[in-house]
Amino acid sequence: MTAQPDSRDSADASRALLRPVRPLNAFEDTVERLLQTIRLGVLQPGESLPPERELAARLGVSRDTVREAIKSLAEAGYLVSRRGRYGGTFLAEALPAPRPEEVRFSRAEIDDALRLREILEVGAARMAAARTLTAPEREALWSRLTDVRGAAPEDYRRLDSRLHLAIAEAAGVPSLVPLVAQSRMRLNELLDCIPLLARNITHSDEQHEAIVMAILAGDADTAAQTMTAHVWGSAALLHGFLD
């Protein structure tokens, strides 16, 4: 029989996990923090989450961000919202079962894929912004950005990858492109194991636009910094769902 955690221990663990998040990826980090409390057993099936106001204060985010994170996790099957006098947000009695492909990835494998991605794609964004791009290169970046911004859910991963490959191409280092392509293949295997969250897609679209605009403006520091934040956002969700 599995031992239930002591309530005091649960409260201490909850305080440790539900700590302030990074402002650039508030939604994604909020999802990760909530998933940690669920997957590590800090919350038990049927147990209620702290009120939105308390969660927002602990995490250092707005109540809207907390609400969006809760809504996304409810849609993914982890949480249940109930109305009425005894309402609130509760951990689902039965959590989504891992799909076979999810169990293939260890934390070390996830970290390896994400760290390689950061090295390759942050460097690509910086180098692309440092170059004087040709008119066709600028047009290709904007076209790929427009494509992913209007993508249907079933096309999102493919068009997202095309944009990131276009950024690698804009870096002007031909041998970089196949490396980014290989890295994206690994990344997409991981991303295909987690649900598409609407709020995350909106945030990714905003970051995509900021990256492309920085590249077109020749602002290498902003391009690199925004790409770093973009990579960290994906990392938060992957670790939250797959660890």
Rank of each mutant, 00 (worst) to 15 (best):
L197G: 00
M213R: 14
A224T: 09
V103D: 10
V66S: 10
K71S: 15
E75R: 14
I110A: 00
P45G: 08
D29Q: 15
L73R: 03
D243A: 14
P51S: 10
T202V: 13
P178Y: 05
E137S: 11
P20I: 11
P98T: 07
R144Y: 03
G123D: 08
Q182D: 13
G77S: 10
A171K: 01
A97E: 15
R22I: 07
T202P: 02
L237Q: 01
L196H: 11
S175D: 15
L95Q: 08
T222P: 03
T228L: 10
R144Q: 13
E137V: 06
L238A: 06
R104Q: 12
Q44F: 04
E121H: 02
L35Y: 00
E68R: 14
E137W: 03
A57D: 15
L133A: 11
L165W: 02
S161W: 03
Q4N: 09
R83D: 13
W232I: 11
A229Y: 01
A140L: 09
A152Y: 07
I167C: 06
F241R: 01
R107I: 09
V61R: 00
G218D: 06
P174F: 08
R117S: 14
A74P: 03
E139G: 04
L34G: 06
A128H: 00
A26P: 05
I70A: 14
A181N: 11
A76F: 09
V61Y: 00
L43Q: 10
E209H: 09
E52D: 14
T132Y: 07
G233M: 00
T226L: 01
S48K: 13
D29N: 10
E169N: 03
A235V: 03
R199D: 09
R39S: 13
V173I: 15
L145R: 01
R85Q: 13
T222A: 15
D9N: 13
P178E: 04
R85T: 13
R131L: 09
Q36G: 09
G60Q: 06
D205C: 08
A223P: 02
A152N: 09
A108E: 15
A236P: 03
E139V: 11
A74Y: 05
R83W: 05
M213C: 05
P50T: 06
E139K: 11
T37C: 15
L187M: 15
E118C: 06
I215R: 01
A74T: 15
T132E: 14
V61Q: 00
A13Y: 11
S7M: 08
G88L: 07
S10F: 05
R83Q: 13
Y78P: 03
N188L: 08
I194C: 04
R138K: 14
R19M: 12
Y156S: 07
S204C: 06
A198Y: 06
A170W: 01
A224H: 08
E206M: 02
L91T: 11
D64N: 11
A181Y: 05
F241P: 01
A74G: 13
E52I: 12
E169M: 09
A13P: 02
A94I: 14
L238I: 12
G240F: 00
R126C: 05
P23M: 10
I167G: 02
I211E: 00
Y86K: 13
L120W: 05
P5V: 12
G60N: 03
D147C: 07
M185P: 02
R82T: 11
L133I: 08
L196C: 05
D29F: 15
E206A: 07
S7Y: 04
A224K: 09
P5Q: 10
